[in-house]
Simulated scan of single mutants.
Amino acid sequence: MTPPEAPDTTAGTTPPAVSSCPKLGILRKRGDFLAAARARRQGTHGMMVQARARGDGDPAIRVGFTCSKKVGNAVARNRAKRRLREVARLLLPALGRPGWDYVLIGRPEATAERAFPALQDDLRHALKKLHA
C-alpha cells in the first residue's frame, strides 16, 4: 500500500515580496565606534543612541551595537543586543539618514526587559532628537 500524495500547496501562492529597504551596514572597526562616540548622542529609557554623519559620500546607513558587562552576564548582553538589532532592522531603513553611522548601546536592566513597542518608540524618539 502506498501513502497518499501530499496536496499541492504551491498553486495560487505568490513568492514573498522583496524588500525595497536598503540593507544596513554593520560597524565592526573600533575607530568607527570611537568616531560615533565623539558625535551626537541621545539617551532614552531603553538605550543610548550615538549618531554621526560620515561625510564620505557613501549613502549606506551603518549601525553598531554594544552592551557592557554592566548589562549583565553573557546571556543578558546577547539578549539585549538581539533586541537592539531587531529594532534597528525595523526602523533605521525608514528613519535613518543615508551616510550616517549609528551605535545603539544597551542599558542595564532596561534593554532586555523593556517592552518591544516601547523599545521601538525609544529609538524613534532618539532619532527624531538627533536629526533635529
Results as ranks from 00 to 15, higher is better:
residue 53 A to F: 07
residue 33 F to P: 12
residue 64 G to V: 00
residue 52 R to M: 15
residue 14 T to E: 11
residue 53 A to I: 06
residue 115 A to H: 07
residue 33 F to E: 15
residue 8 D to M: 11
residue 67 C to P: 06
residue 14 T to G: 10
residue 83 R to L: 00
residue 107 R to A: 03
residue 106 G to F: 01
residue 122 D to H: 03
residue 3 P to H: 08
residue 78 N to V: 05
residue 75 V to F: 03
residue 113 E to M: 09
residue 76 A to Y: 00
residue 67 C to L: 13
residue 23 K to R: 15
residue 86 E to G: 02
residue 130 L to T: 11
residue 36 A to V: 12
residue 20 S to H: 14
residue 39 A to F: 10
residue 62 R to E: 11
residue 122 D to R: 04
residue 76 A to E: 05
residue 104 L to Y: 02
residue 90 L to V: 10
residue 51 A to S: 13
residue 84 L to K: 02
residue 63 V to N: 08
residue 116 F to G: 08
residue 23 K to W: 05
residue 2 T to V: 11
residue 51 A to W: 05
residue 28 R to I: 11
residue 5 E to H: 04
residue 56 D to C: 12
residue 2 T to W: 01
residue 7 P to M: 11
residue 53 A to K: 11
residue 69 K to P: 02
residue 119 L to Q: 04
residue 11 A to V: 08
residue 38 R to A: 15
residue 131 H to D: 13
residue 7 P to N: 08
residue 131 H to V: 09
residue 130 L to S: 13
residue 126 A to E: 11
residue 54 R to S: 09
residue 70 K to H: 04
residue 5 E to W: 00
residue 35 A to V: 11
residue 104 L to T: 03
residue 7 P to C: 12
residue 7 P to L: 13
residue 116 F to Y: 06
residue 45 H to K: 14
residue 117 P to F: 01
residue 108 P to R: 00
residue 59 P to M: 14
residue 45 H to C: 11
residue 41 R to M: 14
residue 125 H to P: 03
residue 97 R to S: 13
residue 77 R to T: 02
residue 62 R to N: 12
residue 128 K to Q: 14
residue 48 M to S: 13
residue 41 R to Q: 15
residue 38 R to H: 06
residue 94 A to I: 06
residue 78 N to G: 05
residue 62 R to A: 12
residue 58 D to N: 02
residue 37 A to S: 12
residue 54 R to D: 09
residue 130 L to K: 07
residue 25 G to P: 03
residue 113 E to N: 09
residue 43 G to N: 02
residue 83 R to T: 02
residue 92 L to G: 05
residue 25 G to F: 04
residue 9 T to V: 12
residue 88 A to Y: 04
residue 110 A to C: 10
residue 28 R to Q: 14
residue 55 G to V: 10
residue 75 V to G: 00
residue 120 Q to G: 02
residue 74 A to R: 01
residue 4 P to T: 11
residue 105 I to N: 09
residue 26 I to G: 09
residue 87 V to D: 10
residue 39 A to M: 09
residue 57 G to W: 02
residue 116 F to K: 02
residue 50 Q to Y: 09
residue 69 K to I: 00
residue 36 A to F: 09
residue 14 T to P: 01
residue 91 L to W: 04
residue 52 R to K: 14
residue 88 A to E: 05
residue 40 R to S: 15
residue 6 A to Q: 14
residue 14 T to W: 03
residue 49 V to Y: 08
residue 1 M to H: 05
residue 67 C to I: 06
residue 108 P to L: 01
residue 66 T to A: 10
residue 118 A to D: 13
residue 130 L to C: 13
residue 121 D to N: 03
residue 25 G to V: 07
residue 86 E to D: 09
residue 63 V to Y: 03
residue 126 A to F: 00
residue 122 D to E: 10
residue 105 I to G: 14
residue 36 A to R: 07
residue 93 P to H: 08
residue 84 L to V: 06
residue 7 P to A: 15
residue 65 F to S: 12
residue 29 K to D: 13
residue 9 T to M: 06
residue 29 K to H: 07
residue 101 D to M: 03
residue 93 P to C: 10
residue 42 Q to E: 15
residue 7 P to D: 13
residue 39 A to H: 05
residue 79 R to H: 06
residue 19 S to Q: 10
residue 22 P to Q: 15
residue 87 V to G: 11
residue 73 N to E: 00
residue 22 P to G: 12
residue 107 R to C: 05
residue 109 E to L: 07
residue 42 Q to A: 14
residue 10 T to A: 15
